[in-house]
């Protein structure tokens, strides 16, 4: 089973040389720590920055320089700043190559819910609806089951949707899964020490298992 860092490490292997990448809040943010040094990647922050750098050194925080999670960050040589309309313009126009975000639920046809729990949590969708509606390459980083032990990979989402038929790949503490074009979660890799049976038990939606499923190398 993977911890959060492990999930981030596995997702980092999906990041390719030359990519512009948008990282959501939570586990996706950790992915930045594991992008191989020999590839050239530019991180987009949807509040209006390309070329997001690491956190500043203590005492060098700039209140005018933050990421979409409102954390103080730094800019890098070659960074560019722009307004919020242009930021979502480049997202809508599919200039961003990869979007990595978290989810509360994903359905077997690629629907995603991650912004609202009626009666409990109403914080808003932020940029998530724009991202999932336009991005062609979306990876979800999430826990396979919730705190009550219930699967978050479902036949249909039960929570209010963020977007429909948009998730292509999911990385959880148990597995890497592809969402098939005709529906279903195809099991691609198992986390170290996790059996196909474990994954079947934790997946409420349709799970497609073909042949031997390799253990992931991270």
């Amino acid at each position: 089973m993977l911890d959060k860092e492990g999930i981030a490490k596995r997702i980092a292997k999906e990041v390719k040389d030359g990519y512009y990448v948008n990282l959501g809040i939570g586990i996706p943010t950790l992915v930045a720590n594991y992008i191989p040094e020999n590839i050239d990647v530019v991180l987009q922050s949807e509040n209006g920055l390309l070329g997001m750098g690491p956190f500043p050194f203590e005492g060098e925080e700039d209140p005018d320089t933050i990421n979409a999670g409102k954390q103080t960050i730094t800019k890098l040589p070659g960074s560019a700043v722009f307004d919020s309309a242009m930021s979502f313009g480049m997202i809508r126009a599919k200039k961003v190559n990869l979007t990595i975000l978290g989810a509360m639920e994903v359905s077997e046809n690629g629907d995603i819910a991650n912004w609202k729990i009626p009666g409990k949590m109403v914080k808003g969708m932020g940029g998530a609806m724009d991202l999932v509606a336009s991005a062609e390459n979306i990876i979800v980083a999430m826990q396979h089951v919730n705190k009550a032990g219930e699967s978050k990979l479902l036949p249909n989402c039960t929570l209010p949707l963020t977007g429909i038929k948009c998730v292509k790949k999911i990385v959880t503490e148990l597995a890497v899964l592809d969402v098939l074009p005709d529906g279903g979660f195809k099991l691609v890799e198992r986390a170290p020490g996790v059996s196909v049976e474990d994954i079947k038990k934790a997946t409420a939606g349709k799970l497609v298992v073909e042949g031997d499923v390799p253990e992931m190398a991270i």
């Binding site: 949807e46 307004d83 919020s84 309309a85 930021s87 979502f88 313009g89 997202i91 809508r92 109403v122 808003g124 969708m125 932020g126 940029g127 998530a128 609806m129 724009d130």
Partner: peptide, 20 residues
Amino acid sequence: LLSGELEVELIPQGTLATRC
């Protein structure tokens, strides 16, 4: 919001920026 004193319309961030 939960008590109904405040009316709230939540809209996607890109939609908000682009409507401006």
